[in-house]
Amino acid sequence: MPRRPPSALQPAFPLLALGGRLQTPTRPLRSALLAMHHPLGASTGYMDFSRGDWAGMVERAVEVSTFAAELGALGEDELLGLVAFLEGTPRLPFHYLSVHAPTKRRRLPEPQLVALLNQLPAIVDSIVVHPDQVTAPPDWRALGRRLVIENMDPRKTLGQLPEHLAPLFAALPDAGFCLDVAHAGAVEEDMDVAHRLLDAFGARLRQLHVSSLRAGRGSHVPLYRKDEARYARVLARCPDVPWILEAPPPRR
C-alpha cells in the first residue's frame, strides 16, 4: 500500500495566530507519542534565531500548540524584555504558560531576581528554575506555588537525584517540580532516576521538558525515535501535565 503523501496528513493541532486567521501548520507532528498527548507546548528556548522578539517567538510556539507554552528567558538580560512583553497584556491563547527563569549571564542579586520574577503577571502559571540558582531558598518563597524546580543533567554538580532536590523542596513546600526527561535519561540510561524522581516528587509535578540530548554536548534536540521508546514508561506516568518541547517537534 503506498504511503500517503505528507500533504494529505492532517494538522496535529488547530492553529491560531496571534493576529489574523488560522494558518497552516509548518510542522505537523509525526510522532505518535507526542501527537497523542494533550496538552503539549513549545519552549521558546530553542528559538535562538528570534531571541528577543517575544511576539515572533510566541507566534512560532502557537504553530506547535495553542494550549501550552514556555517562554524562556534563559539569559538574565532577556527577562526585562519578557516582563515588558507580558505587561502589555498580549492576547495569548495558552491555557498553561510557564516562564523559564534565567540560568545564564546572571548579574542581579538573588532577592532582586526573585522580585523581578514575581512581577510576572498572574497569567504565568509556573516559573521554572534550576536548583543551582537557588542558593537562599527563603528568598524564593515569595513565588509561592508558581515556583517550579527542574532536575539537572550530569554536567551540573548537583540537582540530578531525588536526594539532591529533597532539601530544596523541604525548604520550599509550595514549589512544584518540572521533570526534564532528557536530563534524567542522561543520568541513567534505563530511566531509573526519572522514576525515582517521580516517586519522590510526583505529587508536585507541574510539567515535563521533553526532548533528546545531543551526544557529548548536552544541548536539546528533537526527540529521537529511540528515546521515544526509552522514555515511554516515564511519560505514561505523566498523562495529565503539559509536555513542553525543548527542541522543535521531530520531523521524521
Partner: peptide, 18 residues
C-alpha cells in the same frame, strides 16, 4: 486577571481538569 487568589483557583481548576 491580576488577582492572585483567583489565579490560584484557576490553576487548581486546570490541574483538576487535566
Amino acid at each position: 486577571r491580576e488577582d492572585p487568589t483567583f489565579q490560584e483557583c484557576r490553576r487548581l481548576g486546570r490541574e483538576i481538569q487535566q
